[in-house]
Design a protein around this nucleic acid. Structure first.
Lengths: 114, 114
DNA sequence: GCCAGCTACCTTGTATTAAAAGGTAGCTTG
DNA sequence: CAAGCTACCTTTTAATACAAGGTAGCTGGC
């Protein structure tokens, strides 16, 4: 195996892990306060969780359809109007379950290291 | 949204997270000592990480092809011969990188909670 | 000594979904 | 008024976990 292959597989592995928590991460960001797609992307990037538009739009719609999120249009001072998403009461309940699952998962991984 | 939908979405979310760490978990299990598919499945189940055969066989082959794993056939006292997988030197290096990524990810998630 | 059941291997088909790529349109600024 | 930026969204592609189905070795009961 070439060095590049090693890196490629590692990158892929990293992407896989990221995917698994993407939805969780997005909910966490929105739970901090209403925000819109590009801002979410920027926030995730800061947290070293790369996401692109094509990923986030369908995901937001999915969460909206599940009544975990809601949105409202707001004008911007510089550019087209933005769709601000906020978390619903049900979304908060969901997020709380999600966090428990996340904790259980990290614990499981820790156990496997023994 | 009905109560059942909520659970369905939650289950799906949990499955997504599990998927992301599957490869990592399998490597961790094999790193503890040589083992074969059914034993790995049993181990993961103990750690509450459900996996089925159809998932694990292709994955093991992939890791073998990437030289992260190696295998040897060994006879069983009860049943057909088993393909025992063990981690290679390169696999150990890989796993170490993997662990760093995992740590970075959990840290990122923690930061998003603030 | 054979067949039922278990264990083990593996492959094929399906569904989900993240990412890539492309498309539309509002708004600002020179 | 056109170029460029920001924002929205959709369509296509590729990866991959799971479901389901298939082959075969070995054992134990009859």
């Amino acid at each position: 195996m070439e060095k590049n292959d090693f890196q490629k597989i590692l990158d892929n592995a990293e992407a896989q892990m990221r995917k698994g928590v993407l939805e969780f991460a997005i909910l966490l960001v929105i739970a901090r306060g209403k925000t819109y797609a590009n801002e979410i992307i920027a926030n995730l990037q800061k947290a070293h969780l790369a996401v692109v538009e094509g990923t986030i739009y369908p995901l937001l719609s999915r969460l909206k359809n599940a009544s975990l999120l809601d949105y409202s249009w707001e004008e911007s001072k510089a550019g087209p109007p933005r769709k601000y998403y906020s978390i619903t009461a049900q979304g908060k309940k969901f997020l709380s379950s999600y966090e428990k699952q996340w904790q259980a998962l990290t614990k499981s991984i820790d156990n496997l290291k023994k």
